[in-house]
Write a protein that binds this DNA or RNA. Sequence first.
DNA 1: CGATTATTTGACTGTTTGGTCAGATTATCG
DNA 2: CGATAATCTGACCAAACAGTCAAATAATCG
Lengths: 211, 211
Amino acid sequence: MAVNETKVARKRAWQGAIQDADDQFAMKRQVVLRTAAQIFSRRGFHQTTLSDIADELHIAKPTLYHYFKSKDEILLEVQQAAIQQMLEAPVDPKANGFEQIRGFFHRYVEMIVDDFGTCLIMTGVTPLEPGNRSLVRKGSKSIELILRDMLKRGVEDGSIAPVDPKIAAKFMFGALNWIPYWYRSDGDLDVEGLADRAIEFVMRGLLKAPG
Amino acid sequence: MAVNETKVARKRAWQGAIQDADDQFAMKRQVVLRTAAQIFSRRGFHQTTLSDIADELHIAKPTLYHYFKSKDEILLEVQQAAIQQMLEAPVDPKANGFEQIRGFFHRYVEMIVDDFGTCLIMTGVTPLEPGNRSLVRKGSKSIELILRDMLKRGVEDGSIAPVDPKIAAKFMFGALNWIPYWYRSDGDLDVEGLADRAIEFVMRGLLKAPG
DNA sequence: CGATTATTTGACTGTTTGGTCAGATTATCG
DNA sequence: CGATAATCTGACCAAACAGTCAAATAATCG
């Protein structure tokens, strides 16, 4: 049963059965973050108590405070992880706009179906305290600006049709950001297939010569 | 100042200055729902206290319980209102799939930029208690099925390109559902303009003969 | 007017839950 | 082993907040 496998894996991860891990502390933090991200996404931030997270990990609530200073910090780190995954992705500087955009969306879909990315979208930034909220907003904005620049580049180098980068980016992100609300990775469509479909849908409007 | 105008209007509405209204009770309920929807969308359901809503209306918290039996019921009615707005919209049975879809999206954009629709999307159903959550999910599903049927019709009557109605609908709704997260009706783009852009983006993938 | 009903509210309660803390347990290492 | 540090936890606290209730006020109507 998949559920029990997950539980076993989680317990093993927590107890440090993975021998070659050097930094237990950092590793356990990661396990907390992943678990929290999953529960936050499923039940919502405010419907999830710290005890819920602790129970899932078979530890006591105060133990969480050994690794994080607040519930808010947990959510912040989850979301920052998702954002960083996008920001540190390499971009081929030699590719034209169209190709860069396709690569960008491929990474974006992968990011967003991951626990952290899903939590970034489904939980949103509203639960965060103002300071942290601004941080995440800033990160999200950076990601958006990357796409906008690629769109501009594509229009200029003629690899895509002339579009308003601001508006186009909004609709495109919308189509992709909604994925966590309906996509289940255990269904017919695997992540690769999803990415293909998503890219096809979202980029059709960018084609110059129709086909 | 727009804010103060809103406040005055709200107070007037509450106090029943609108003379020709017959049913004060029903009217005040509506005012509560609109106000709640706005605050829920802005701050999130759990960040909004009933006192917040009451304060905005210049009434006391217990007064709200004269009109609604719980916070949950308020959210439920807000979301049901949005859904009903879509479900009761007329569909031209003589139009082909393409035209029906365009009309559908136009109404959908109007619904979603409204307080109720925005709250439906931004607050989501997770805060609702299970029974009510199912109700709203069911309504949303009905809306989705309407679009799917139109897509199927369009493919069959040849007015749109052959697409998988299920997947296409998901991406299309995504692009539109994300609107509340970025669109401000007080900016350059008015609702009509937004609807045009949205429909253009979302329907480009449905065009058979390109152009 | 007086009486009946609808509307409103100040004061209160019960519960939930994020967060704390002192002490227990376990691991590390000289 | 013994001591020092890291990890973990049971018991507790304080604040926030949905919801209650008895009583006050306002509206309706004979």
